[in-house]
């Protein structure tokens, strides 16, 4: 399973390179079939209705094509990068404001990404995904709600019936576990 997922991760990076270098529609279709349905789920869980989620998903995937030259595999996995595009779309379309972005680091994507750095980053992203999947259900659910539900901790408290202190300590516990798993 691990090897399969790692290979998938490398494949996604290769797909984005093929889009960047050769406007490869088959590579795009592969990425689309895997990620677009999940982007749509993310947007719907964040409060978009099906029509808006479909529209935004198409825009997110079109952005991926157009910004393929900005993807840096030493900084992000394909899933992380697509998440940030979808997240920005959600802020724009659902929350209706723009997202202030930090200044970029002085070293940029103009240098050819180092293969070894990219490999380490991709493996760590994979490890994080596994650590997340291995969390106890209660902790994972709370982290999911924090990311997708567009809910504050106090709103999560209302939905789950858990006291605020418990939620905060469970999220902290989950983050500690994730950190431990990454060591």
């Amino acid at each position: 399973m691990t090897n399969l997922r790692e290979r998938e991760n490398d494949d996604w990076v290769a797909c984005i390179s093929r889009i960047r270098d050769a406007q490869d529609q088959a590579a795009f279709a592969e990425l689309f079939n895997h990620f677009a349905p999940r982007v749509k789920s993310f947007l719907m869980r964040s409060g978009a209705d099906a029509t808006m989620a479909e529209e935004c998903t198409q825009e997110v995937m079109a952005t991926l094509w157009q910004k393929a030259h900005l993807f840096d595999p030493t900084r992000a996995s394909a899933a992380t990068w697509i998440f940030t595009i979808a997240r920005n779309r959600k802020i724009d379309a659902i929350r209706k404001h723009k997202r202030p972005e930090p200044e970029d680091l002085p070293w940029g994507p103009e240098a050819e990404p180092d293969q070894a750095d990219a490999l380490v980053l991709q493996q760590e992203s994979e490890q994080l995904g596994q650590a997340l999947a291995a969390l106890p259900d209660k902790q994972r659910t709370l982290i999911e709600k924090a990311y997708f539900g567009d809910l504050s901790h106090s709103e999560i408290a209302e939905q789950t019936g858990l006291p605020l202190g418990t939620i905060k300590s469970r999220i902290r516990l989950a983050l500690d576990r994730l950190r431990h798993a990454m060591k």
């Binding site: 990620f35 900084r75 940030t84 997340l132």
Partner: peptide, 19 residues
């Protein structure tokens, strides 16, 4: 960067919605 990676992993772990 680490929190964005968590977001990516959570999104990838979502069940697929019919397009």
């Amino acid at each position: 960067g680490a929190f964005d990676t968590v977001g990516g992993a959570l999104m990838e772990g979502c069940e697929a919605t019919q397009l």
